[in-house]
Amino acid sequence: MDLITLAFYFFAALTLVFGGVVVFSKNIMHAAFSLLFTFFGVAGLYVLLQADFLAITQIMIYIGGILVLIIFGVMLTTRITGVDVKSGASGRIQITVAGIVSAALAVLLIYVSLTTVWPQSPVAEAGSTVTAIGNTMLTKYILAFEAASMLLLIAIVGAAFIARKK
């Protein structure tokens, strides 16, 4: 068992365990903080997959941006000082149904992953992906890139508009 394999299992465990904590935790603040570790695990997996730029992006945007946003959301909509910092689990029936459906989907997806013969190319050892992403983004996906920038602009303006006090 080499170091790469060890690292993979470490990051996989990190992702899944804290993912489970996010989902099952009763306390919403715990869930939010567990999400941080999950994101971090995913970023590690990215590194193992030679996606250096994406790993950095994951940490900066998810952890530095989205997660902070979510924690702000929790604090603004939940009376933290009060009793009700519960993540609000539903009734027993709902949880049972959700469990059955999720388990079935998990079984299905894993079954599919394991049984399918995926067409694979030999893994090319490559350096940094940043140059390649930059070139592709500004040539082949220039339209999508511009559309995405418009989307972000609109989302910012729209979010500010929706959230402000009437």
Partner: peptide, 20 residues
């Protein structure tokens, strides 16, 4: 919305069960 999601997933499972 959650019950809708459940229904959607169940529908998806049924479809896959029949056609996969």
């Amino acid at each position: 919305i959650q019950s809708y999601v459940v229904m959607a997933i169940v529908g998806l499972l049924i479809l896959i069960y029949f056609f996969y």
